[in-house]
Amino acid sequence: MYAQLVKSEGAKSREEMTPEEIAFQERIDRGEKIEPKEWMPEGYRKTLIRQIGQHAHSEIVGQLPEGNWITRAPTLERKQILLAKVQDEAGHGLYLYSAAETLGVSRDELLAALHSGKMKYSSIFNYPTLNWADIGAVGWLVDGAAIMNQVPLQRTSFGPYSRAMIRICKEESFHQRQGYDIMMKMCAGTPEQKAMAQDALNRFWYPALMMFGPSDKDSVHSAQSMAWKIKINTNDELRQKFVDQTVPQARYLGLTVPDENLTWNEDKGGHDFSEPDWSEFFEVIAGNGPCNAERLNARVKAWDDGAWFREGLMAHAGKAEARRRAAQVAAE
């Protein structure tokens, strides 16, 4: 999930709700979409800014581990494909920032909160992409997990968020397929290439499982978010679906999921599997993952280095506008 650990503002029982809040909840229960200018509880607005913001940040920080491989892709075709994917991620970030902005927060405020570390992005992007097989594993597993989370969010209650999700889901499935395509190629290659693919799966498996956030029993913010339909499934439901979907895909590749407890459980119609190491997850979220500092520094540097350009274009636009006005006055 691209938005993990989103703090939700106080869940209220029906008795504690104001008439306005009850009417709002009833609209959501009826499946109506909430639009930006309509009345909404402050907690709904704040939680959504956090969640959509975190989601947007994940899209643009997610460009970094992959962008790292654009110049080193093995063929021109792979380079074009990766470039297109990374460009998509920028677009996805933009759709989501725009959705967040309809709630009354500015783009610059959101970016400042990312750069200061006040807002988070998905833990997954704090792991390094060490070789080309990792790009395959990222597309297959990371985008696969993201799709798992994003498909139900197309039905989320907030109109702009829902519309952004629909657009993103339409574009995202190529991302996962190109990743799996890389994995198929590697697994059909030399023993060394197949070993690289296995190694990439070994390193990305548990971080991918962490993307769905902590186990439901430790996830304190779910209830309110689910009542508001800004979260549709629980973390554990989505994680289970992801494992059940991915295991046969790994088998097809001839790769082994790095979990000796992984077994098919006939009774529940799904796999039993090991939980990721949650202490590692909380460390990474707290800023102590392998690449946290590198990712944030790259973002801040890009923002600071681009300041003269953003300001220059604004100055140019201002002057052009002034010239246009002057010409208009002269013509009258």
Binding site: L94, Y95, S98, E101, R107, R163, A164, R167, R310, L313, M314, H316, A317, A320, E321
Partner: peptide
């Protein structure tokens, strides 16, 4: 279809 930031109409 959505929105975006840009310094002027052309951009």
């Amino acid at each position: 279809v959505g929105s975006l930031h840009a310094p002027d109409a052309e951009m």
